[in-house]
Measured scan of single mutants.
Amino acid sequence: MAEQVALSRTQVCGILREELFQGDAFHQSDTHIFIIMGASGDLAKKKIYPTIWWLFRDGLLPENTFIVGYARSRLTVADIRKQSEPFFKATPEEKLKLEDFFARNSYVAGQYDDAASYQRLNSHMNALHLGSQANRLFYLALPPTVYEAVTKNIHESCMSQIGWNRIIVEKPFGRDLQSSDRLSNHISSLFREDQIYRIDHYLGKEMVQNLMVLRFANRIFGPIWNRDNIACVILTFKEPFGTEGRGGYFDEFGIIRDVMQNHLLQMLCLVAMEKPASTNSDDVRDEKVKVLKCISEVQANNVVLGQYVGNPDGEGEATKGYLDDPTVPRGSTTATFAAVVLYVENERWDGVPFILRCGKALNERKAEVRLQFHDVAGDIFHQQCKRNELVIRVQPNEAVYTKMMTKKPGMFFNPEESELDLTYGNRYKNVKLPDAYERLILDVFCGSQMHFVRSDELREAWRIFTPLLHQIELEKPKPIPYIYGSRGPTEADELMKRVGFQYEGTYKWVNP
């Protein structure tokens, strides 16, 4: 592979701008107003304001973009700056750019259920340069409990009458099928589907988006991507930290609602779906819905739930269990780990287990898709061969690698495990991989909904998990304890083995 010439960040961002501006969906010269509902909250200060700053800094926003914060707290732009700027990672050389960014910011205080507050917000936006005809993007960085009041008031008082209007809704989209349907029906009564952007930030990850290209742009994968060759698929999300004093919020939802029903299920769809007619948003989402419709409700015998306990040999936070978090209700049975087996009941995947695993306070930070292939028929190497695996590593250190057998150097035919490896950090030294939120917010500006969740996708996802969630809430089974920093409950490994996964433990990928 030829040595790549190092590029400056300015040059890299210039390439990104060229890609972005050559499309006809990006209205570079139009006025846009980006409204952050819930501007005083954690999500706004840690993710949304920093993301908008990065896009502005790199010249990736339309030229005439204004940012308006809205929340109940009586704040000023200076207050917003004070709480969000520490997350910007701005350099001293960017000081003038930073001043320009905050000059485009404003803030309006108001209630979430008060019509007069929204009329005041609308008047404020109209007073901005060309504000009355601007395109408006409303980001709901809010708890779902206020979605209905907020969307109703936005629709009645704050819509642009000339430009387009788009609304970005953060997960969780309800707690179960019934609450999700209620919320979807409410929002759909106010906005068209092409105006609604239900954001799952995992769909903005580079390697998640790469799944489609790997599958449908490489001839070698087509013939082997089926039940005849693939023994099982494992989708993993692991965090090495616990709730760390923020367990009160987590306890309301648990690990299945927080990660599995959305992030992991979306990745499953991209692995299992048929080739779409095109890369058009609805063509892709149509195929994802077909996959979900082929999955039956989760069966309790295919589920393992766990909850982390303190590690007596650990240090600091590792010595504390979930129930030691003062914000967690006493005696909570909320799971911090889950392993679930699903089956896609169609011709391509009949009988292939899709194993979804996620948890907190585990032994490493990792998100990946792992396809394990069947054993080689007619073994001539005296059971020395391990199964081939194709691994798409989402985070950290984005990579695609194939675990395969090669001859060990020497005189004899002794096979050993090795890999074919594409590590993004080595291959793409001159490429700026956008943060997931950067990519998705740019998608909203461009009107691309491919990486957002459609209402029928959402409904099918909740259909699969709601009976299990209701059973857990009714019966309150005690989750299996696992030690902070471990791989999780051993019962999860036993479940995976029972459905056909072979864990060798003899080879570990190392970032080159």
Rank of each mutant, 00 (worst) to 15 (best):
V5E: 15
L7Y: 15
L7E: 15
L7N: 15
R9V: 15
R9H: 08
Q11R: 15
Q11M: 10
V12Y: 15
V12F: 15
G14N: 15
E18T: 08
E19P: 15
L20W: 06
Q22E: 14
Q22R: 12
D24T: 08
D24P: 02
F26S: 10
Q28T: 12
S29I: 15
T31I: 09
F34S: 05
I36R: 03
M37A: 15
G38P: 02
G38A: 04
A39Q: 00
A39G: 02
S40V: 02
G41E: 00
D42L: 03
L43W: 02
A44R: 04
I48F: 03
I48S: 02
Y49T: 04
P50I: 04
T51Y: 06
I52N: 02
I52Y: 06
W53P: 02
L55K: 00
F56G: 02
D58V: 09
D58M: 14
G59Y: 03
L60F: 12
L60T: 02
P62N: 07
P62H: 07
N64E: 10
F66R: 13
F66T: 07
F66H: 14
I67S: 01
Y70W: 07
R72V: 02
S73L: 04
A78W: 11
I80V: 14
R81N: 06
K82H: 12
Q83I: 11
S84L: 10
S84K: 03
P86K: 09
F87I: 07
F88K: 00
K89V: 09
K89R: 15
A90N: 10
T91N: 12
P92S: 13
P92K: 09
E93C: 12
K95N: 09
L98K: 05
E99P: 04
D100I: 09
D100H: 13
F101R: 01
A103Y: 09
S106E: 09
Y107L: 08
Y107W: 08
A109S: 11
A109I: 13
G110S: 06
G110E: 06
G110C: 09
Y112T: 05
Y112W: 06
Y112A: 02
A116Y: 15
S117W: 10
S117Y: 11
Y118A: 07
Q119V: 12
S123C: 15
H124Q: 12
M125K: 02
H129K: 15
L130G: 15
Q133E: 13
R136W: 06
L142A: 04
P144M: 02
P144Q: 03
V146G: 02
A149Q: 13
V150F: 00
T151N: 08
K152Q: 13
N153G: 12
E156A: 14
C158S: 12
Q161L: 15
I162L: 13
G163F: 07
W164H: 07
N165E: 10
I168W: 02
F173P: 02
Q178G: 11
S180T: 04
S180I: 02
S180R: 04
D181W: 05
L183K: 03
H186P: 04
H186F: 11
S188W: 01
S188H: 12
S189W: 07
S189D: 11
F191C: 05
R192D: 12
E193H: 03
E193F: 03
D194C: 09
H201A: 01
H201L: 04
Y202R: 00
Y202T: 02
G204I: 01
K205T: 03
K205F: 02
M207T: 03
Q209M: 05
N210W: 04
L211W: 02
L211I: 13
L211E: 01
R215E: 01
R215L: 04
N218H: 03
F221N: 08
I224P: 06
R227E: 05
D228V: 07
I230F: 06
I230L: 10
I230G: 00
A231N: 09
C232Y: 05
F237Q: 07
P240D: 13
F241T: 05
F241S: 04
G242V: 02
G242L: 02
T243D: 00
R246T: 00
Y249M: 02
F250M: 00
D251R: 01
D251S: 07
F253G: 02
F253D: 03
G254N: 08
